[in-house]
Design a protein around this nucleic acid. Structure first.
Lengths: 205, 205, 205, 205
DNA sequence: GATGAATGAGAGTTCATTCAT
DNA sequence: GATGAATGAACTCTCATTCAT
């Protein structure tokens, strides 16, 4: 429901317009929040009239939904990268922490993510999308960890579940840290993060 | 700006009224979010007229600001408890995880906290309050860890900084986990969380 | 659903405000039509802010519904008058034609009635109200005609049905006549109308 | 104003296009009403782009005006039929009632007619067209009734005027009846309608 | 001739805030 | 102190109309 089914004669143009809107909306949501940003402001940022946006999105909600879906796809590509990398998985994941910290301490993206989470608390569609995304992310992670190359092939299922949630909490929590502590020292965080993640990636003693 | 400077003839009554409003507002924000809850609903929940609220708070923003201040005080009392407990600090902190998980997976409180964080991205007053609270919380934690009974008396300053941020990220991140995965298994999380926190509380090998 | 259930401290004031709005809206609908008249215009005509109207009516639709209900009540009082009058019913009804013509050639009321009928074609709630009103009106008329004093006690049921519909068509149709022929001569109409109605009120030869 | 004065290179094609639009618009207005039907829907129904319609009609109003003109012509052809029929005029007119009832209880056409009448209350052009049509219709009827074969050659002029208005009210009113009472029994109506119309077509006793 | 992308004014509605009582 | 009637600006969304192609 997040994209108008309306046919456009020039699909490339339509896609370009859609992306214009998504970029503008993401920007506005970051700065003003979902409710704080009006369609007027979004349209001005997107460089098109407010009315025209409705040729590409059924309503404001559909815009944030599309943004979420876009993010979802991006997340999958990250998992794919991990899966495609050769070598020891623990090493790969620990090395990946640098990027993860980078990504989760981008204050603009963080603000946007918070908006989406806050919106999820009162908008079922948004909540469903986020839940679905999370289910898939956990599943991908699980398969990574118990797969052929996985370091946790032998642990109990619910222990694995707990570990994954704690990993995600830790990484996702960085976003909150950056909001609450803008001076967050990434290098210091990484130094503490690596041994901690290692604990989670290997069987407990 | 969060409290009217207006003089009230009966300061005790005024204080009671303020707390009535704060409790009602927190309740409404939890259920509907900051933007979703209207002054009408808050006033009904508080058992007083909408207009009357403005005798105690200059506007809606001032209400959420006051709620944050109240929460801040609550957090300090938790640190105080840790400090007052006798025995081994690592044990105390690890035992405290049960309560921490409990507190951070309360979905209503989580929704409210997310609202406040999201609001911080665009409301300077809210941001300042949260930042100040966080500075104090980190400081309390630091003193706990490097204090007389502390397990990390000997590590470098910036390493300690990193560890604290990761601990806070991990605990705070649980809030996000619960929002994204409402079926979160608290016991499984605790089982993974304890060894992980222990890694952070003791010098790395 | 046409009246807000919201409690008002001063019901008399509330009622007065409601009537202010209804009068203003009826006026605007007459002049501009239901769709042509905006809430802004109605509120200006009513002498209150647009927002305030929503304290008394849930939405614009509820306003036209209330107008219809008001008209419905007026219609019943007219039937009541007929029923309360002593004397020969045929004479009473024929004498009532003067008022009927008067009422149905009021061009403002006519315009408003047409709006309501046109709106009924696309608004189910309005249609239901009008249908319900019409059912009741036909029933009242039927009881008048077959009642103790009625002139058509002995005719078949479906003949009676047909007669009532033709009577109502004839009277209601005057409204259309006045719209199409503003110079309509009321006296001339009455001269033709009386014998015609008499034909309908007495058994056919 | 109802037709663009713009010159078209192929007038026949232009005329065809105009009729395409009129047919589509009439269809849409019937189903959704004048205000309920958008130019987008009309253009889709007409099988041409919205913009192109503006090459044939200055605006939406011009479309309904043209529809009225078309209907006007249709009405005249009905009178012509009566005039061309041989035999007793009273019989012809009474026999014509079947068709009249049929035509005036078509609920879609009725909705369209109501739209036009309602529109007349606020659109002078529409009002003028309808008035002019009505003048002509009354004149045709008058000539039928007082003509060579007419049954009312000897009655006073204003009595005739009144009778015609009542006849038209009765027939036109059926449209209202059908809107208010969709279950209207056509046969029962006809049984009551014939004697009533006969009363109007013959000198009063 | 024909398209439909694009506009922008204006629609109905909500809600934080004010103020007379 | 307390009320809630009243305001009005801002919101999302629609749609007749224009115009570059």
């Amino acid at each position: 429901m997040k994209q108008k089914t309306k046919r456009h004669t020039d699909p490339a143009l339509a896609q370009a317009r859609r992306e214009q809107v998504l970029a503008a909306a993401a920007d506005c949501f970051r700065r003003k929040g979902y409710h704080g940003a009006g369609m007027a402001e979004i349209s001005k940022t997107a460089g098109m009239s407010a009315g025209h946006i409705y040729n590409y999105f059924t309503n404001k909600e559909a815009i944030i939904e599309s943004i979420i879906e876009r993010d979802m796809e991006e997340m999958f590509s990250i998992f794919q990268e991990f899966e495609d990398m050769p070598g020891d998985l623990v090493t790969i994941l620990l090395d990946g922490l640098d990027h993860a910290v980078e990504r989760h301490t981008d204050i603009d993206q963080g603000a946007l993510n918070l908006e989406m989470l806050a919106e999820a608390a009162r908008n079922n569609k948004v909540a469903s999308l986020l839940h679905a995304t999370d289910v898939l992310a956990r599943e991908r992670m699980r398969q990574l960890l118990v797969g052929e190359r996985g370091p946790l092939k032998d642990i109990a299922d619910d222990e694995l579940t707990g570990r994954i949630d704690v990993m995600f909490a830790m990484i996702g929590g960085l976003l909150l840290r950056k909001m609450l502590n803008p001076d967050l020292d990434q290098q210091a965080v990484l130094k503490a993060l690596r041994p901690t993640m290692k604990t989670l990636l290997l069987p407990f003693a």
